[in-house]
């Protein structure tokens, strides 16, 4: 009799286990090259090492040869590894360029060469959180570097509101607003109204382009914001 019940249990387990299938996620995003550490100002004769990353059609960072250009070589020069040198006061545009499938993809950032060595470089970005679902989610934020560290401060403003009805709401930094693959989890959302902060360690200001709110048990996007 025990054998009979064991057999029945195994058969039922097999039948039910086979219910699991596959869902296809449309996760394609435009390919992108991004300058990770832009600056606004550089003093004459000083240097700055630019870094850039290439993100493929699913927002995943990929190694590829990146070339660099300065639009005004008389103001600043840049070598093949992205080291820029200020020549004389003026304005130029620094470009990072990649070739993928015979298509040129580039990112650019303006650069001022100045004489004043006390000129500071601000490094902060902002965004507006909006729902992409039927759950309430809204607010604005500022993402800024924390001085003398490799860390970022994500400051969600007082106008932020999120539904408390949604189970398993998590927040991510990502380069693909449709997927949490290759995304950086900031953890479960624990504040659903008002101002609050996240300290994000060892992340650059330009490493991610999108703030994503994601429902874990449903594996679905709830809302998010471009980091601009």
């Amino acid at each position: 009799m025990t054998k009979f019940y064991t057999t029945v249990f195994i058969v039922i387990t097999f039948l039910f286990s086979s219910c699991k299938g596959e869902d296809i996620l449309d996760d394609e995003v435009p390919r992108e090259v991004r300058i990770l550490n832009p600056i606004e100002n550089l003093t004459e004769s000083s240097t700055h090492q630019y870094n850039a990353s290439y993100f493929n059609n699913i927002g995943q960072q990929e190694s590829i040869t990146i070339s660099w250009q300065s639009s005004n070589e008389s103001v600043a020069t840049i070598n093949t590894s992205g080291l820029v040198t200020g020549v004389m006061a003026g304005q130029t545009e620094i470009k990072a360029i990649v070739m993928v499938n015979n298509t040129t993809i580039e990112d650019s950032t303006p650069l001022n060469i100045v004489m004043d060595s006390n000129t500071s470089n601000s490094s902060s970005k902002t965004g507006t959180i909006a729902t992409t679902s039927s759950y309430e989610l809204s607010g604005t934020f500022t993402l800024s570097t924390i001085e003398n560290t490799n860390n970022l401060l994500l400051s969600i403003d007082a106008n932020y509101k999120a539904s408390t009805s949604l189970p398993g709401l998590y927040v991510y930094l990502t380069n693909n607003p449709n997927s949490v693959a290759n995304a950086l989890s900031l953890g479960a959302v624990q504040v659903f109204s008002g101002a609050h902060n996240y300290v994000i360690e060892n992340v650059g200001i330009n490493d991610y382009s999108y703030l994503l709110y994601w429902c874990e048990p449903f594996s679905v996007k709830v809302g998010g914001a471009d980091i601009e």
Partner: peptide, 26 residues
Amino acid sequence: FFSSTYENDVISGTTGETISSGETVN
């Protein structure tokens, strides 16, 4: 006497790779 709950695998429509593996709990 037997209850099974499951979730599908999520597959990238771009690469065909598995983004998240589903589960079955009995």
